Computed example of a mutant assay.
Amino acid sequence: MLTQPDLPIRADLDLTSLALQIARDPDRWLPVVRFDAQERWYTRLTVVDNLEVWLLTWLPGQCTEIHDHGGSAGALAVAQGVLTETTVHAPVDAILPGSQVSLSRNEIRSGEVRGFGAHHIHEVTNESDAPAVSVHVYAPSLSTMSRYRIDDGTLRLLASERAGADW
Rank of each mutant, 00 (worst) to 15 (best):
T43V: 13
R24G: 11
V92N: 06
L155P: 02
M145Y: 01
D129H: 12
E123P: 00
V78D: 02
Y138W: 08
G61N: 04
V133L: 08
V124T: 13
H122A: 03
L76K: 02
T144S: 11
V113R: 08
G98L: 06
T57M: 03
L30R: 14
T154M: 13
E127R: 12
V78C: 03
A37Y: 10
P91T: 08
G81M: 00
Q80I: 11
D12I: 10
T144K: 07
S134G: 15
T64W: 09
I121P: 10
V53P: 01
A163D: 07
V133T: 13
W58G: 01
V33K: 14
E52G: 05
S72L: 01
E123L: 15
T87V: 15
P140W: 07
Y148R: 05
T46D: 07
T87P: 01
T43L: 06
A73N: 00
R44D: 00
T57N: 06
W29G: 03
V113E: 06
T86C: 05
L51W: 00
S17E: 14
Y148P: 04
E161L: 15
D151R: 14
R28C: 00
E85C: 06
Y148E: 04
L7H: 07
R156V: 15
L56Q: 08
P5C: 02
A159R: 15
S72Q: 01
D25N: 11
I95W: 09
N50Q: 14
R149F: 04
Y138N: 02
L103F: 14
T16S: 14
V48G: 00
I66G: 06
S17W: 03
S104M: 05
E52S: 04
R28T: 10
D36T: 01
V48P: 00
L15R: 05
